[in-house]
Nucleic acid binder design. Sequence first.
DNA 1: ACGGGCGTCTTTTTT
DNA 2: AGACGCCCGT
Length: 762
Amino acid sequence: MQNILQELNDKQKEAIQNTDGPCLIIAGAGSGKTKVLTYKIAYLIQEMGIKPWNILAITFTNKAAEEMRQRAEKLIGENINDLWLGTFHSICVRILRKFIDRLGYDTSFVIFDTSDQKTLVKNCMKELNIDTKLLTEKSVLNAISNAKNEMLEPEQYSLKYAGDFRKETIGKVYTLYQKRLKDNNAVDFDDIINFTIKILMENPDILDYYSTKFRYILVDEYQDTNKAQFTLITLLASKYGNITVVGDNDQGIYGFRGADIANILNFEKDFPGTNIIKLEQNYRCTGNILKVANAVIKHNQNKYEKKLWTENDEGTLPYIFCGKDEYSEAEFLIENINRLKREEYFKYSDFAILYRMNSQSRAIEDKLRIENIPYKIIGGLKFYERKEIKDAIAYLRLISNQSDNFALERIINEPKRGVGKTSLDNIRNIAIQNNISMYEVIKNASDFIPRIYENTRQFVEVIEELKSTECTISELIMQVLNKSGYIQALKDENTIEAETRIQNIEEFVTVANEFENESAENTLTEFLNGIALASDTDNLENSDDVVTLMTLHSAKGLEYPAIFLVGLEEGIFPGYQSMDNPEDIEEERRLFYVGVTRAKQFLFLTFAKRRTIFGSTSYNPPSRFLKEIPKEILDGYEKAMEEKDKNEEFENSNVEWNYKNHYNKADFSNVITYQAKDLSNSTSTKFGRTAESFLASIQAKKNTDVDLSKFKVGQKIYHKKFGQGVISKLEPEEDDIKVDIDFEKAGHKRLMAKFAGLEILE
DNA sequence: ACGGGCGTCTTTTTT
DNA sequence: AGACGCCCGT
């Protein structure tokens, strides 16, 4: 242990040796936060003789938990399975599995994910005859989640907002929503924390047990905790008060989902006698990258002001680049990936491309694919969100818990069994009237509803058989999907998509197989748990040599030698929905700070003059965050601004343009959105051309000499920009032909024959 | 019951 | 641009 402490700087040492009483560690990006936490765990166990089961350590993701466990075990040199180490949710689920019966739930409860929640809200609103045009399900779900974050139960919520018609309605939905969850023996994400709190508060014996057990509590990423999480740790720490929280108020980026940065700001008030330790030495980034980070974040109001410094080299200047559009932005990324590979011997896995929202990945992917650069995407459409996987999970859920009406609704007609909307409504109503589960309704359907009886008999038999079968989870998946006819239905489809689905299911079986091989205690319930609480970054492996694409949020806690921060435009980053609220802008700025500080050696900041997103094209000014960086510490500044101000030469295009001011709400007058559609008004554009003259210039490019008879399906053609391709479809339009072409490299495109300048190949 | 077609709406981030 | 919901015809 002596030599371990020697590996730490003075502040880090102080943070570790400060074991008793409340301790707030303000840890700047790259300051060795994880190191401090793991060493502190090791220190407690080895130096202070604390038993692992008397320590609770809470992290933000499962991946962070796993990493921390491994690093701590390496330090100590033995397994520390008895240490409670996990996310808020996984820790609470563990407690709930033991004690949720005190709230009248069964300990085999299921966890509802976001889409289950949505469906449930929808059903509730329907049942209450609430017009979804006046009150959208999304806003209701949001309101419910906010209420739960503030720890208001339905009755309290209704009471608090009595007199407010809108909120009274929401209160009614909330009440029913909560009842239906209970009917299904289900909890949602927020319930996991809140129910644990409730159990601890209502049962002194349980509170005493856990607050005695957890003599030392450590919490990571404290800036991203919410009110409920704060309450929970306050309860657990109530006996000993040995609580260490680590966080960085400049990295709080989850305000949108209820995280309250006030938690970290008020910690010293909430826990009197707090010792505050600031870790300001950065070990990750070059000096210049840190300068960028510091320059931007200082525009935020800040309580714990800190100035990150480093002994690392200054490094090269971060590069700023302006692309013509999102594709030229992507080309810039590729050039630099190739350059650094060549000049610095970088691997693909040394690069990460970070964007504000998932939909931005598309253009980048297109280019990466064309250039044959291997990549992977974190987030977006997740494995467990695919239809076939959700279906398989629903079957498992129903087998493990027959009162799970949601699982039943999902799969009762999957594959098709002739149970449509009408039958389903019937089943649901009978279930509600008799206060039994929908599964019970169909199981006992025989006498009163013959049609349902016939159509669901085989389904019930399969569930009945498998619920009492002793077999492994992977076998169970295969059996249920085979016996239910699910796989057969996919095979009968005989399409490539169905084939992919079957492969995904096979992958799912593999996952299940690995899970059950890990430990004999890994039951079906545990498996379903793990899935519900899994996040995508959890499975992020660095073994493949590929470029990583992800949102800035997913990048939290990670680091890469080279980082591309793309889409740095007003309206994109910061996003337009945060632009009228100074607090939201500060959160965006923290997000920018997080992005910048992921980079170890190279940082590229890019924006595009023109961008097509959500189906319309807009010209956004560069992000305000770029302007907050002194231009002396940016490479390529002049060039980028020149490109930005350059008058654009419209490309050969076959679309007519019409513009409208898209951002009038945000008072953002220099943003103009162009939208492809009919050309009716003739207001002049930003570039001093009228729409007519623009149309005329397009018309002039139209080549009337094209011999349309040469265009046939299967014909090989050549396009100046897209290269070689084959015509897959023709569609006459006025005096022209719309041609669908599969290009070898550029993929599928639809062009007008007379505009595109296609060469016929032999 | 079911599938296709059409129109509308929505675009943030996720444990 | 794409997802989703609704309506209609079978």
